[in-house]
Design a protein around this nucleic acid. Structure first.
Lengths: 199, 199
DNA sequence: CCCGTAAGAGACGGTGCGTCTCTAATCGGG
DNA sequence: CCCGATTAGAGACGCACCGTCTCTTACGGG
């Protein structure tokens, strides 16, 4: 009577069950028993694949959220290019809810690094394009400056998580624009603007 | 035979015991039973005062780490003033070890806000002093700009915690100087430097 | 067709939270 | 100085859930 699942199929079912449980209850109240029951399997099947509850959750998140950015946008303006990347990050950040993260910050931080490992290259390319266009005089800004908007967006994200606050799309848009217009672009123009003295 | 402690005395003993347990094992492996045993009392005495393990830990941290900055430094230079504040923060950050924080981020974030509630006022005063000295043309920088170094230092702190990395004093000093010299001061000079156009 | 692998189901021990219970020390009021 | 209210000190208890172990049985490769 009962048809047994195996391999890929079974694993996908489990990870989707785990993701559903996280969405419903958050990580803290995710139970291995609950996931097994929802996937209609036994705990041993889970423990055969992942060493503990945390790694199961991480696998479920990875399974649901793929890599972030793969290639650099090229809209013809530094502001728009960077804005595109930040919007992607902010959109993604809305999946990282407090319920998902609490109790799981270190693991998810590592995962986020893996997911967005292409970011530094993308930013470098955006800056090179801007330099080629003449928007800025050179693309080799200090690391800290080039990555500044990314760091600030991540900081805002962590801050909301830790305050148990949800991020609305409108808020995210405002924050992202603010970071670019009142911090990043003025700074970049001061360091490498076409009208500034060449260093 | 046994002499019983009460009130303040008992409470201080418990909080010191809790702090000691946190130092030894970290929050995650802090047990209420352990604290009670170390303080030579019963669990009920703890639960009579704090509703759960997390609040006990928060109380212990608050008991050990007092408020951060109370009044603005005034060294005669914007850079040195701000550097002084950042050094205080970085020094304090070295108490917020990964072991202490894991599993307790939201609670400690709230506590940190309480502990450093004087910061915004201090920063505002530092900027006013710089304006009075003529280092900058005006002190009403955008909120995000004025607080930028604080946010970046906090971000670095959270990042180390989440990566289970300790912060050495030398590293902290380097990061703090980098934030001021490659990000904050260039930006402030661009927005309100004496040689920039008055807006 | 047969055997090794792994699924499905659930029992089990262990840890540690938060509650409850009980005795007796201490404090404050009269 | 005594008496009653309070609460310290000690530990048992129920409960939730992790991670391990055991057992039977379906499946698939050779």
């Amino acid at each position: 009577m009962p048809t047994r699942r195996r391999g890929e199929e079974l694993e996908a079912t489990i990870l989707e069950a785990a993701w559903a449980e996280i969405q419903e209850h958050g990580y803290n109240r995710l139970t291995v028993e609950g996931v097994a029951a929802r996937a209609q399997t036994g705990k041993q099947v889970l423990y055969r694949r992942w060493p503990n509850r945390a790694q199961l959750a991480v696998a479920a998140i990875r399974h649901t959220l793929g890599p972030l950015v793969t290639e650099a946008p090229d809209t013809g303006s530094l502001r728009e290019d960077y804005l595109t990347v930040l919007r992607l990050m902010a959109g993604r950040a809305r999946h990282y809810t407090p319920e998902l993260l609490h109790g799981l910050m270190p693991e998810v931080w590592g995962l986020a690094g893996e997911i967005s490992s292409a970011l530094p290259g993308v930013i470098a390319e955006i800056l090179r394009n801007a330099a080629a266009r003449g928007e800025i005089t050179h693309a080799d800004l200090p690391e800290r400056v080039a990555m500044l908007p990314l760091d600030l967006v991540r900081y805002e994200g962590m801050r909301s998580v830790v305050r148990w606050a949800e991020i609305t799309e409108a808020d995210a848009e405002k924050v992202v624009a603010d970071i670019l217009d009142t911090v990043f672009l003025p700074l970049v123009m001061a360091l490498a603007g076409p009208s500034s003295r060449p260093e």
